[in-house]
C-alpha cells in the first residue's frame, strides 16, 4: 500500500520533471525573437489606440515602424515629441514641427443666422446629408450639424452648444484627424493649439451671395487684411484665413469685421454642452 503511494508520487514527479525539461529546451530552441524596439516604441506612443496612423492601434503602429518601415511621423496624437523619440530608437532623424495642431469647426451658422434650403428628414449623418443637394443649408460650405465628427471622435472632444453648433474642445483633442477625414464639407480644419482667433467661415462664395444666405459668413471684404496685416490675415478666394506664423495684433481686425466671423477660440468654449451622439431619430418620411 505504502509502496504504491511512493511509486505514484515518484512517477508523477519524474514525468513532470521530464516534460518541464522538454518545455525549457523548446523555449530556448524555438524562441521567437521579438525586436525590443517594438516594445520601446509602444511604450512611447500615447496608447489612445485612435487608429489615426492607419494601423490597428498603437502596438500595430510600433510593429509597422520596425517591420514595415512605416513613416515615423504618423502618430498625430503624439506629435513632434513622439516622432523624435521614435526616431531616436530607430536611429534615424526626422524633421518635425513642434506645434501641436487641433481640429476646429470653421462655421458658426445657426437656424437664426443662416438660411435653409429645405427641410431635411433623413439619417443624421453629414455624408448622407451631403448626397442630397449638398445638405439642407443654402450655404454649401458650412457645418451641416449632422454630428458625424462627434460620432467618430475617439476621445469625446467634440460637442454641441444650445444652438446645435459644433465645437472642438482643444484640450481634449488628440489631433487624430478622424473628424477632418469624415467631414464632407471640409469645414473641420486644422488650427494650431495656441491659436487665439479663427475665421469661423468656410464659404468661398462671393460676398454678395454669402450675405444673402448667412449673416455670420465671411464676405471677403478684406477689412481684416487692412486693419491687422501684421496679424497674418489673408483673403483668398473670397475667404479670409489667418497665417498663424505671424504674431501681430489681431484684435483690430476682430472688432472691425462686419459679419463678426473672426472669433476667439477661448470664448466659444464654455458654450459647449458635450453630449456624445449616436445616430439620432428625427426623421419623418
Amino acid at each position: 500500500m505504502f509502496i504504491k503511494i511512493i511509486f505514484s508520487f515518484l512517477s508523477v514527479t519524474v514525468l513532470g520533471g521530464l516534460l518541464g525539461l522538454g518545455l525549457a529546451i523548446a523555449a530556448k530552441l524555438l524562441a521567437v525573437k521579438k525586436d525590443e524596439r517594438i516594445e520601446l516604441i509602444e511604450s512611447i506612443l500615447p496608447g489612445a489606440n485612435c487608429g489615426a496612423c492607419g494601423y490597428p492601434g498603437c502596438s500595430g503602429y510600433a510593429e509597422g515602424v520596425v517591420n514595415d518601415g512605416a513613416s515615423l511621423t504618423l502618430c498625430t496624437t503624439g506629435g513632434g515629441v513622439v516622432a523624435e523619440k521614435i526616431a531616436e530608437i530607430m536611429g534615424e532623424t526626422v524633421e518635425v514641427s513642434s506645434q501641436k495642431m487641433v481640429a476646429q469647426v470653421h462655421c458658426r451658422g445657426t437656424r437664426d443666422t443662416t438660411k435653409y434650403a429645405f427641410d431635411y428628414r433623413g439619417i443624421a449623418d453629414c455624408n448622407a446629408m451631403m448626397i442630397l443637394y449638398g445638405g439642407d443649408k443654402e450655404c454649401k460650405y458650412g457645418c451641416l450639424q449632422g454630428g458625424s465628427c462627434i460620432a467618430v471622435c475617439p476621445v469625446d472632444a467634440i460637442g454641441r452648444d444650445e444652438q446645435n453648433r459644433i465645437w472642438v474642445d482643444k484640450d481634449i483633442c488628440i489631433s487624430c484627424g478622424k473628424c477632418i477625414d469624415v467631414c464632407p464639407t471640409h469645414v473641420m480644419k486644422w488650427v494650431p493649439y495656441d491659436a487665439d482667433y479663427i475665421v469661423a467661415c468656410n464659404s468661398v462664395d462671393k460676398g454678395a451671395l454669402v450675405r444673402k444666405y448667412c449673416s455670420v459668413g465671411c464676405i471677403g471684404c478684406k477689412i481684416c487684411e487692412k486693419k491687422s496685416g501684421e496679424g497674418g490675415f489673408i483673403v483668398e478666394n473670397n475667404l479670409a484665413h489667418i497665417d498663424f506664423s505671424k504674431t501681430g495684433d489681431r484684435t483690430a481686425a476682430v472688432t472691425s469685421c462686419p459679419s463678426k466671423c473672426i472669433i476667439s477660440t477661448e470664448t466659444a468654449l464654455p458654450e459647449i454642452i458635450a453630449k456624445k451622439e449616436t445616430l439620432e431619430v428625427n426623421d419623418k418620411t
Binding site: G122, I123, D125, N127, A128, I131, D283, T285
Partner: peptide, 9 residues
C-alpha cells in the same frame, strides 16, 4: 427606416 438612404451613404 430610411434604408435606401443608408445604402446610398
Amino acid at each position: 427606416i430610411p434604408l435606401i438612404q443608408g445604402m446610398r451613404l
